[in-house]
Design a protein around this nucleic acid. Structure first.
Length: 754
DNA sequence: GGGGGCTATGGGGGG
DNA sequence: CATAGCCCCC
């Protein structure tokens, strides 16, 4: 048996690859050859006689799955195609298509994206006559999402005193009812949101303990999970369903790095990795600590930064690449200058270090920061590509055509109907739509059924009937023809193409181009095939196409290989590496994000994010910040990020002037308001009004009514911490997130009532 | 029912 | 700053 591939591995990597049976945990530092271990392990399983289709490898991004498959096939050849490798969401979606009827769903169920979910929630809030200010759509959706990811059904939610109390506190006591309606509306529409793809799979396994669970336990003899630190409770629960049972071999290999856990906001819990041993006592652990990616200064900087996080699995990341450049820190006056200086440095690196464009990345905390860099790169004639933000599939014209395609496959899809029932215009306005919708609610029928059952005036009635016929016709074609044939037909006869053709503006033109590009993409889908497992490989139907794109992001766009500079958020950069990396916007309120500042866990997660950013760089790492920048149309002044202070001088390029001492900054930073040039508008309150007399911290105690300059009147709920680090939890009536935690040392609070 | 212009509001990371 | 929602007028 040819095992030469093992010689590409160091000792620990080899052990991790060859220890096949039972629970295995691989703690893999950045650049430590994690993907190599994962792929060689799969290759080793196959060479050891395990059938490829018995192996299930779960990742978080399609890109990671694709890369893994490519690399396995380099070792074991074509059999790699038979391995079940894909994202949690896409693999689970495939299983759910097969088993849909067992949980009362059609096998052609629609996947609602975030926009669809929000549209539905907005409507529910409106229908229930709730105040949309208290019931902020994004928060409601986040809360529903988090309930699902913790296996809390609407019923359980309503019974959960703690959750209900929080909702009452935030003045949205009816959240459970919105959740309930949301779930039933999704079900009636034959739709699942992203969380449902996980939740419904769990439900499937839970409610069909015999045949179904057995089937998948047998099918997947070996499980591998990449980036395990990013799994949430629900994902872990599913994994346990598959491998933790009486008589199981517990062949589960998890790979991850607690220091790179950056998805707590979508429910990931670091406890999964920290407590893994409790669930699998026979666990064998391997730690990959040698970093093959970066030079020493970069590795050391990363180590220094992450040391500030308390909770972590001990490990010592090291490198033998001791030559290298120190880190550069660039301070700019404005975001504009930051853009120019980064572009300047890129030119310099290209000349001096011969770095090519595709080895350069600009990483930022938020997608909105890309603009300045784009401007300067364009000006300097440097090719670049922006990832993230609006993806191709989220463009209006693309979503419109996709809505028709979705309807051809699943006419119950209410969000799709609402999107296109009057586009192109066919005289079906809001009032008719409302009538149909109300009728549907009264009779507990779907919108689609209500289209023909609801009594309407003769004109709209006719239009509704015609629309249904149109969709039915599309549906009939969809079962006979392949995806491309149906889609081109639908694009024409829905009137979408004509509608865009009649728009002669530049924008209209580019929209038409996008539609053509979408159709080209569908053509490509017909001509090539790339499936995630043994199932459905040859399926070129519209349904199959829709399912393949529902879970794509623009990170998955393979069409544009080229020599360009990469611009992306740090989150998207996870798993990638570049010779030269710029981490920009290193300022308080940005990185760390202002939303994270209130809790230690929040800051820690930002720090892990910074750690991820640093460790993307192989050779050149540049950190930049600006003193002022435009944000939301206003100039704001931010202090340099605290994370900059956490890297010691000896790692920094000495030609760069060092800023003021850390402790001097510390004060202003936490307070958030400091000296501001006259005549410049800022979002901060600069000087208190004359009738405002702040109390000193020790005078504030629980139960008091106080006044805050920004948040108004509030009631002090509790005080914790000591001396200088006393923090008050205060409930402010007049603001959106009424409960705030405020550091007394810096807060200006006036006592209103003792 | 449709379209244009105005105001208010919110603004993070992603499958 | 961008978008959603609203009002007004056709």
């Amino acid at each position: 048996m040819p095992l030469d591939y093992l010689k590409d591995l160091n000792d620990v990597q080899q052990q991790a690859v060859t220890h096949l049976d039972g629970p295995v945990m691989v703690i893999a530092g950045p650049g430590s050859g994690k993907t190599r271990v994962l792929t060689y392990r799969i290759a080793h399983l196959i060479t050891s006689g395990i059938y490829p289709e018995q192996i299930l490898a779960l990742t978080f991004t399609n890109k990671a799955a694709r890369e893994m498959k490519e690399r396995i096939s380099r070792v074991v050849g074509d059999q790699a195609r038979r391995v079940w490798a894909g994202t949690f969401h896409s693999i689970f979606a495939r299983i759910l298509r097969v088993e849909a009827d067992r949980i009362g769903y059609p096998s052609n169920f629609t996947i609602y994206d975030t926009e669809d979910s929000k549209a539905l929630i907005t409507r529910i809030i409106k229908d229930m006559h709730l105040d949309k200010n208290n019931y902020n759509v994004s928060s409601v959706r986040a809360r529903i999402s988090s309930a699902k990811c913790n296996l809390i059904t609407p019923k359980l939610y309503a019974k959960d005193e703690e959750l209900m109390q929080i909702d009452r506190f935030y003045r949205r006591p009816m959240l459970y009812a919105i959740y309930d309606r949301y779930v039933s509306q999704c079900k009636m529409a034959g739709a699942m949101d992203f969380d449902d793809l996980l939740y419904k799979l769990f439900e499937l396994l839970q409610t069909n303990p015999d045949e179904v669970v057995d089937k998948y336990r047998r099918r997947f003899a070996y499980l591998l999970v990449d980036e395990f630190q990013d799994t949430n409770y629900l994902q872990y629960a599913i994994l346990k369903k598959l491998v933790k049972y009486e008589g199981s071999n517990e062949n589960l290999c998890i790979v991850g790095d607690d220091a790179q856990s950056i998805y707590a906001f979508r429910g990931a819990t670091i406890d999964n990795i920290l407590n893994f041993r409790k669930d699998f006592p026979n666990l064998v652990t391997f730690k990959l600590e040698q970093n093959y990616r970066s030079t020493q200064f970069i590795v050391e900087a990363a180590n220094e930064v992450i040391r500030y996080n308390k909770k972590q699995i001990q490990k010592k990341i090291w490198t033998d690449q001791i030559d290298g450049n120190k880190l550069k820190v660039i301070k700019s006056i404005s975001d504009n200058e930051e853009g120019r200086r980064v572009a300047d440095l890129i030119v310099e690196y290209k000349n001096r270090h011969h770095v090519s464009n595709n080895e350069i990345a600009i990483l930022y905390r938020t997608n909105a920061q890309s603009r300045v860099f784009e401007e300067y790169l364009r000006r300097y004639n440097l090719p670049y590509k922006v990832f993230g933000g609006l993806s191709f599939y989220q463009r209006k014209e693309v979503k419109d055509l996709i809505a028709y395609l979705r309807l051809a496959v699943n006419p119950q899809d209410e969000e799709a109907i609402r999107r296109v029932i009057n586009y192109p215009k066919r005289g079906m306005g809001n009032s008719s739509v409302d009538k149909i919708s109300q009728f549907a609610a009264e009779k507990t029928i779907t919108f689609w059924e209500s289209l023909v059952q609801c009594p309407l005036p003769s004109r709209p009635e006719k239009i509704a009937k015609q629309f249904r016929q149109l969709i039915e016709e599309f549906g009939a074609r969809a079962v006979e023809k392949n995806a491309y044939e149906v889609a081109s037909y639908i694009a024409q006869s829905s009137g979408l193409i004509d509608a865009l053709k009649s728009d002669n503006s530049l924008e209209g033109l580019s929209r038409l181009e996008n539609l053509t590009a979408l159709l080209d993409g569908i053509k490509e889908f017909i001509d090539y095939d790339e499936a995630e497992g043994p199932l459905l490989t040859e399926d070129k139907s519209l349904a199959s196409y829709l399912q393949s794109i529902a879970l794509l992001t623009d990170l998955d766009d393979e069409t544009s290989f080229g020599d360009y500079i990469t611009l992306m958020s740090v989150h998207s950069a996870k798993g990638l590496e570049f010779d030269a990396v710029f981490i920009v916007g290193l300022e308080e309120n940005i990185f760390p994000s202002f939303q994270s500042l209130e809790t230690q866990d929040g800051i820690d997660e930002e720090r892990r994010l910074f750690y991820v950013a640093i460790t993307r760089a192989r050779k050149l790492l540049t950190l930049t910040y600006a003193n002022s920048r435009y944000r939301f149309g206003k100039v704001v002044y931010n202090e340099p990020s605290r994370f900059l202070d956490e890297i010691s001088e000896k790692l920094l390029d000495s030609t760069v002037p060092r800023r003021a001492s850390a402790s001097a900054n510390h004060r202003a930073r936490i307070q958030g308001s400091f000296r501001v040039p006259k005549g410049v508008e800022t979002t901060q309150t600069v000087a208190p009004p004359v009738d405002f007399t702040p109390a000193s911290p020790h005078q504030i105690h629980a139960g008091m009514k106080v006044k805050h300059l920004k948040f108004g009147i509030g009631k002090v709920i509790s005080i914790d911490g000591y001396n200088d680090s006393k923090v008050a939890t205060i409930f402010f009536n007049e603001v959106n997130n009424p409960q705030r935690r405020i550091m007394l040392k810096f807060a200006k609070l006036q006592i209103v009532e003792d």
